[in-house]
Amino acid sequence: MSAIPAPISSPEREWSLPSRGKTGMLNLILAESAIFTIFVISYIFYLGKSLSGPTPVEILHVPILDTICLLSSSLTIHFAVAALRRGKSKAFLFWWGATLALGLKFIEGTAADWYQMIYRENFSIKTNLFGTTYYSLVGLHASHVTVGLIGLSLVFLLALAGKVKQQHAERCEVFSLYWHFVDAVWVVVFTVVYLVGR
């Protein structure tokens, strides 16, 4: 066996690869988008196909305030991450807390809405086809918001304890991608359910 020497001169080229966390999160977002796509398609497909009432116009109230809350929380989480990257932990705590509060307001709004419809107006997932698609789509989104809120509050508690430092900015940014995604999905859901569907 002749081992011919093969010195590979290592040229000190730049070698940079995308960040693992961001790539992973973007992939998760891709998978989640596919799930939402199927639910949105079935919502649109079944529009107006219910055999009995109520119809969307009769029962849905447009949640304008909640929508504003959720969408502005995208801005606040962006400010929070930017603050953390610059090492300003007070500002981070403020903006992150604001995001959490806005998210909570949104989910509280949905909960109140659902309570009103289910218990006062007798409109549930069983009522008709529209009920099935409406509660599934909005519920799927709400469950994603809930997961996001759990994450937000965990980080918030850690930040209160002073455990979130500048070096965690990358992780917080990865999490913020998820939150932006949840907001973006709401834009689609809002358009489909409250603008087109009514």
Binding site: I4, P7, I8, S10
Partner: peptide, 11 residues
């Protein structure tokens, strides 16, 4: 000694 000559990295 053979290592650095025949391997993929000289580290």
């Amino acid at each position: 000694s053979a290592y650095s000559e025949t391997n993929l990295s000289s580290g």
